[in-house]
Design a protein around this nucleic acid. Sequence first.
DNA 1: CCATGGTATCGATGGACGTCGATGTGATCT
DNA 2: AGATCACATCGACGTCCATCGATACCATGG
Lengths: 116, 116
Amino acid sequence: MRELPLVECCRPISGPALSPEAAAELEQLFKALADRHRLQILNCLLQADGESVCVCDLEPLLGVKQPTVSHHLKQLVEAGLLEREKRGTYAYYRLRLGAIERIGDLLATPVITRAS
Amino acid sequence: MRELPLVECCRPISGPALSPEAAAELEQLFKALADRHRLQILNCLLQADGESVCVCDLEPLLGVKQPTVSHHLKQLVEAGLLEREKRGTYAYYRLRLGAIERIGDLLATPVITRAS
DNA sequence: CCATGGTATCGATGGACGTCGATGTGATCT
DNA sequence: AGATCACATCGACGTCCATCGATACCATGG
């Protein structure tokens, strides 16, 4: 039979544990970041200093075909990280303000870390 | 034929663009975070305030079977986020110092963001 | 030394995801 | 209007991954 272990295990999870719903939400955000091509897109947009970038320029940078680029851009938009703007036949994408900072905040605040 | 677009697109990518290798490395880290159960494990360990937690206590918390818990813990160890310590028949896991902070740093430093 | 209990590993299965050719859509130009 | 170009969507294919039952491993207890 089990008695008290050497160290107190995961206490009754007092306080604001990460709820399954909140965990699923965070999961979605990190999934959007968990792809090398999407990371390169974000890096490119960050270097663009807030300016917009069109799809045609990302294709040679990433080394994938155009449908794949569009696919990744859509993922990032749906994750709330990018904004889309159409000018003529071109589609321009830019970072949503504070998107990256929001991620950093999530790691530094009670959402994932302890309560205090 | 293409002429100059309305806004200068992704400039010749001057400076420290995220290399494919660096992007792949970052991808691995975010993949480790892109799962609700692994996020709950991290949250639990953060609440444990640096103390260790054994597998048996995570099983009911996550609502998955023991092999699945071990699988996720292994993922987190391989990602460099957790450390494993065996005491008797129990296996205890704890956060590697500065693991979470390192993630935050990645988002705030030139690795992903612009050079300056 | 055998039984037991906690964990790790293996193998199979079902679902999610990245990729790209083909096609659709909408705007620009002649 | 027809042609062309940029981009989005669709459908299919291959691969990766989370999950869990079965089993192996290992330390402890009787």
